[in-house]
Write a protein that binds this DNA or RNA. Structure first.
Length: 970
RNA sequence: GCGUGGGUAGCCAAGCCCGGUCAAAGGCGAGGGACUCAAGAUCCCUUCCCGAAGGGGUUCCCAGGUUCGAAUCCUGGCCCACGCACCA
């Protein structure tokens, strides 16, 4: 059994060694330097409710690779990293630990927190102490090229950052980007608080949904109120449903008296209505009476329905049996139930006469989908809940997107359901026949076990992302950015249009107090949009600590930030206010001006539609155009061995585990190879295994002695040509953040070419070529495996650090198409011989190659010339070919060959045409006889096909054409 | 449903924008070989089907179309992943 520790042990020591060397020499600490071009990469700070896993690791590394690449291109590179503690999840999780909830306990244990430590996490502060430090450790162990002097945590625990967020919100408010309005939220009536996804026992992702309240006046002027999500079906109403066994209330709502259930009255009172209950009434007492249905303004009867969910809506339901399966089933039940009709003293004849009214045409459905689906699914009665739910979902979905109202829908005839729905609601509301009510889109249960309702809060602060003028500026920003991959552009444009106003403050959670309204805490996606600017000065404000204790930084005000970021106000004023030297303040201003804007911000695709787009909104609101972000990049969700990484699957892999198991360089290489673009990158353990072996082998290879030669062979030119091309391809891929492609060009393919080169050199590479190869390969790999690179670099006596070395450049003069063409010819000939051997199964004694005869070379050359000028005309080609001496004698052969050429070369590209004829095939094969004999283990002869003295027992020589010698095997 | 990205050999994946050099790179896996006392590592060969001469056949989700020529362009369809919000 191989002991993974044994060999990775070496790598681990190497990694630790160089990590401390980099730290000792402050290699990644970046300060403004007006004499050098800058590059500024960032990754959104991760949320500190646990150790970071490889998902964050991947997003981080994809930015870090770029930072390292830019560093090697000569840029002064800033790559900072902070830690996000704002918001609800830490509080929620801490509370759950305090309550000893097993699930939360298990999550911490799964991260490797020992049992005795877990209780400490009942205090939210403990999270904020443990995880930022741990994440920093993890990233350092991963070899992160980060300037840690600029790190910090968010929230008021870090006063200068808190001051920065207040400044940001003042600027947004001054710019008119903040407004206050009503807002429906999912709400726990017991806690008297909104319930975010993280605080729900059930119902993650459910949101407030608008119901239309339809008002049905009784003869006495009171209204029965029914809730529906299908106001467009009012034209098909036949009756009203009330549960005879339920209790309802009569409530004064505004100036009216409404009848609905008690729960609904409570909900409405949370939704901005004044509701006063006056009396109670049994459902049964309402039966048999008539009400006037809204929209159709017709009298319809109140009938008993037992299917009504009293927890949803008002407990009263309007009946549209044509399109609602529930209604049809209930109607059918009633029509067939004499006992019930008698019990409630209902007009049996009238009720039995009720027929569903067709109102919507939906492709694939008959005129009465409600009836149709009840029949199709074999629904027996209104108690058949499971099937009825299925039926509703099916009918509603197709009806909504495809349905069109038909001619008995008055002014809405011919209008699509999707559109009519809103128009009808608006019309009925304006006529006083309808109102609005919110319900959660699905059942939501609070952690306190209470079922949630929707509350309309009436003083919610919003960032007005819906503002068209603001959107337009964001579109401008998007248009001017570099996006990796390019497909992001469409996505960002779409999200920008789709965003509505964003509630930017809430009542709970960690965060900055809204500066003008102390009842609110700024919400965590809203405060984290321009903090990349904070990084540029963070080294001074933080004083090297995540929570600043720099005295003057505790007292920052808007004037300070106005000066540093806008250059407005006076440095002197700001300095004296803070008790500082003017130079310090001016220096900070210079840092900001130098580093901003961000050149690259990379993240997982989950942040596209919030953080990343918010970041653009905030920048366009606060900063001038020159300081808008220059580049965004996005990667997919990390998969482990082809499966999505998730806590429930138990295949979450933390950075610390990964590094412990494989070492940093292997993980880095595996992540780089996991895949580019928006597809989900796949972290492949098999690859990691072979990557480990490969880099160990590379270390060994690069640092050991080799048998070499001093003299130059033809193959040297070939390898140098390939080397230059690899460098070029690798650079291009790096620039486009296509790391998998970069590895392919700059590592795998290059290694394969080296193998071939060594084989062609009889195991003795040319000494300078070898040295060059090791140097280039080490540098091409350095962004991915910097520790290994550093080790090699130093063992070979390199100056400084390889991570600061110049990235290799291709040398145009070394690109040698002729050498490459010759090599292709040799390889393809070898492949041809092998194929013949494979197919025939013969064990050859002797191999003969016949290179193309002179006359074919001539004809080919003429054909190429003609092909460059346009379509090849056979008569012109023949005329010119036969003009050459000695051609007339073989006119027939020439004609056959010429005809074939005319076809073959017709569509060839220019550089392809030029490549032909650049190689003296005979000389090339002669030169490489030894190689061929060794490879094929057979005696090889090379003849010119037109050599009269050739050995050619089966007349193969005629088959030779340019780029393809004839082959004879005996 | 809308939006976005996809569907390529056993698996992962490149190619598609810019049609021909594509039976289609690379990696992994599998098989064979070299080296070795052996294991590992490394290197070489093979890996859609047929073939006793370098060839032929059938392929790039499906069905049509454009073209001398389609994995690539167009039309229609099927399928998959992610997102659809107040929150990280």
């Amino acid at each position: 059994m191989a002991k993974p520790g044994a060999r990775t042990g070496d790598l681990r020591q190497i990694e630790a060694k160089w990590q401390s060397a980099w730290e000792r020499d402050h290699v990644y600490v970046a300060r403004a330097d007006a004499g050098r071009p800058k590059w500024y990469s960032t990754v959104p700070y991760p949320y500190m409710n646990g150790y970071q896993h490889l998902g964050f690791g991947t997003s981080f590394l994809r930015a870090e690779f770029q930072s390292r690449f830019r560093r090697m291109l000569g840029y002064n590179v800033l790559h900072p990293q902070a830690f996000h503690c704002t918001g609800l999840p830490i509080l929620g999780a801490a509370k759950r630990i305090a309550e000893k909830e097993p699930k939360q306990w298990e999550i911490l244990r799964a991260m490797g927190i020992p049992d005795r430590e877990v209780p400490k996490f009942a205090d939210p502060m403990h999270w904020i102490e443990v995880f930022p430090a741990a994440t920093m450790e993890d990233l350092k162990a991963l070899g992160a090229a980060v300037d840690w002097t600029r790190s910090f945590i968010t929230t008021p625990l870090n006063p200068p950052y808190d001051a920065f967020v207040r400044w940001q919100f003042h600027r947004l408010k001054d710019g008119g980007y903040v407004r206050i309005d009503k807002h429906p939220v999912i709400w726990c009536p017991k806690d008297q608080a909104p319930i975010g996804d993280h605080d729900r026992l059930e119902g993650e992702g459910e949101t407030p949904m608008e119901y239309t309240l339809l008002k049905f006046p009784l003869a006495d002027g009171r209204f029965l109120v029914a809730a529906t999500i299908r106001p467009e079906t009012v034209f098909g109403q036949t009756n009203l449903w009330v549960d005879p066994d339920a209790e309802y209330v009569v409530a004064r709502v505004g100036d009216e008296r409404w009848i609905l259930n008690d729960l609904a009255s409570k909900k409405l009172s949370e939704q901005g209505k004044s509701v006063a209950i006056e009396s109670r009434i049994h459902g049964a007492d309402l039966l048999g009476k008539d009400v006037v249905a809204p929209a159709i303004n017709r009298a319809i009867p109140i009938l008993p329905g037992s299917f009504i969910d009293q927890g949803r809506g008002t407990g009263i339901v309007t009946s549209v049996p044509s399109d609602a399966p529930d209604d049809y089933a209930a109607l059918r039940d009633l029509q067939q139930d004499d006992r019930l009709l008698t019990k409630y003293d209902l007009d049996a004849e009238r009720i039995r006469a009720i027929r569903p009214i067709p109102i919507i045409r939906t492709p694939g459905w008959g005129p009465l989908p409600g009836v149709e689906i009840v029949d199709r699914l074999g629904i027996r009665n209104q108690g058949d809940r499971e099937k009825l739910e299925q039926a509703k979902a099916e009918v509603y979905k197709t009806g909504f997107y495809r349905g069109v109202l038909n001619e008995n829908c008055g002014p809405y005839a011919g209008v699509r359901v999707e559109v009519a729905k809103d128009e009808i609601r608006k019309e009925l509301t304006s006529k006083g026949q309808a109102d609005l009510m919110y319900e959660p889109s699905g059942v939501v249960i609070c952690r306190c076990m209470t079922t949630a309702i929707v509350k309309v809060v009436d003083n919610q602060w919003f960032l007005s992302y819906a503002d068209p003028a603001w959107k337009a500026r964001v579109h401008e920003a998007i248009a001017s950015m570099d996006l990796y991959p390019e497909a992001l552009r469409k996505w960002f444009d779409y999200v920008t249009d789709w965003l509505r106003d964003w509630p930017c403050a809430h009542h709970r959670g960690l965060g900055t107090i809204l500066p003008w309204d102390a009842n609110w805490v700024i919400e965590s996606l809203s405060d984290s949009t321009i903090y990349m600017a904070y990084y540029t000065i963070a080294h001074a404000l933080q004083g090297g600590a995540l929570r600043s204790s720099v005295p003057w930084a505790q007292r920052l005000d808007d004037g300070f930030f106005d000066f540093v970021f806008f250059g407005s106000g006076s440095a002197k004023g700001v300095a004296s206010h803070l008790g500082l030297e003017v130079e310090l303040i001016e220096g900070l201003r210079q840092e900001f001006v130098y580093w901003y804007p961000v050149d690259l911000r990379n993240t997982g695709k989950d942040l596209v539609q919030n953080h990343m787009t918010f970041c653009l909104f905030a920048h366009t609101a606060i900063f001038p155009r020159e300081q808008w972000p220059r580049g965004f990049a996005v990667n997919g969700w990390v998969r482990m061995a082809g499966r999505k990484m998730s806590k429930s699957r138990g295949n979450v892999w933390y950075i610390r585990e990964a590094v412990r198991e494989w070492g940093a360089d292997v993980i880095r290489l595996t992540v780089a190879n996991a895949g580019d673009g928006l597809d989900d990158p796949n972290v492949d353990m098999d690859f990691a295994e072979s990557a480990k072996a490969r880099i160990e082998e590379w270390l060994r290879f690069a640092t050991s002695k080799h048998a070499t030669r001093k003299d130059h062979h033809g193959i040297d030119a070939w390898f140098l040509s390939i080397l230059s091309r690899s460098i070029q391809a690798s650079r291009t891929a790096m620039e486009g953040m296509n790391y998998k492609a970069a590895l392919r060009h700059g590592y795998f393919d290059l290694q394969a070419s080296w193998s071939w080169y060594v084989r062609r050199s009889e195991g003795r590479p040319q000494v300078d070529v070898l040295r060059r190869f090791i140097d280039v390969q080490t540098k091409l790999l350095a962004p991915f495996v910097p520790h290994l690179g550093e080790e090699i670099w130093h063992r070979l006596g390199g100056d400084g650090f390889v991570v600061n070395a110049q990235y290799p450049e291709s040398i145009a003069g070394e690109i040698d198409p002729r050498a490459e063409t010759a090599e292709v010819l040799l390889q393809s000939t070898l492949a041809d011989v092998r194929e013949i051997l494979k197919v025939t199964g013969i064990a050859p004694k002797r191999l003969a190659l016949y290179t193309v005869p002179a006359w074919k070379v001539h004809v080919h050359r003429i054909a190429r010339e003609l092909a460059k000028q346009g379509p090849i005309l056979m008569n012109v080609l023949m005329e010119r070919a036969l003009a050459e001496p000695g051609m007339r004698e073989r006119a027939k052969e020439v004609a056959a060959f010429a005809k074939k050429l005319a076809e073959d070369l017709q569509h060839a590209k220019l550089d392809e045409l030029d490549r032909f004829g650049s190689v003296d095939e005979f000389a090339m094969f002669r030169e490489n006889l030894g190689f061929l004999e060794k490879e094929l283990r057979v005696k090889v002869d090379v003849f010119r096909a037109d050599d009269p003295k050739r050995w050619d027992p089966s007349k193969k020589a005629d088959h030779a054409v340019p780029g393809r010698p004839a082959i004879y095997l005996e």
